[in-house]
Design a protein around this nucleic acid. Structure first.
Length: 99
DNA sequence: ATTAAGGCATGAA
DNA sequence: GTTCATGCCTTAA
């Protein structure tokens, strides 16, 4: 199985209103580099099954390039799901999905 | 089967 | 808050 599928699996398991960082996803998938995760999410995103909009960088800000249409959409979706945005940033302490 | 290139987030000072 | 440097995986020929 390609690691990319693993990444998507994890992302799919992210509950609504919660987010993860690329680094966390990388660790869960066993990838040694978080950048690969970002590449996967940007390259082969499955809009219907892969909520890549729930993946943000370790600062809580949405990463560059959004497969669904734009970072604004991603931000809006997150807010819509109940993720509090504070000045274009998410409170990872609160919204970060833990296991 | 191998080589080559591309593209992205993290950590530390 | 900023800047610098790094490694890794996928796809294509």
């Amino acid at each position: 199985m390609e690691l990319s599928e693993k990444v998507y699996r994890i992302v799919r398991q992210i509950p609504e209103g919660r987010v993860l960082t690329y680094g966390d996803v990388a660790r869960m998938t066993g990838i040694r580099s978080p950048r690969v995760v970002g590449i996967f999410l940007h390259r082969n995103p499955d809009p219907a099954k892969t909520p890549c909009h729930r993946v943000v960088n370790h600062i809580g800000k949405v990463s560059s390039g959004y497969a669904f249409g734009g970072a604004e959409v991603q931000k809006k979706k997150l807010i819509d799901e109940g993720v509090p945005f504070v000045k274009d940033r998410v409170n990872l302490r609160v919204s970060l999905w833990i296991r």
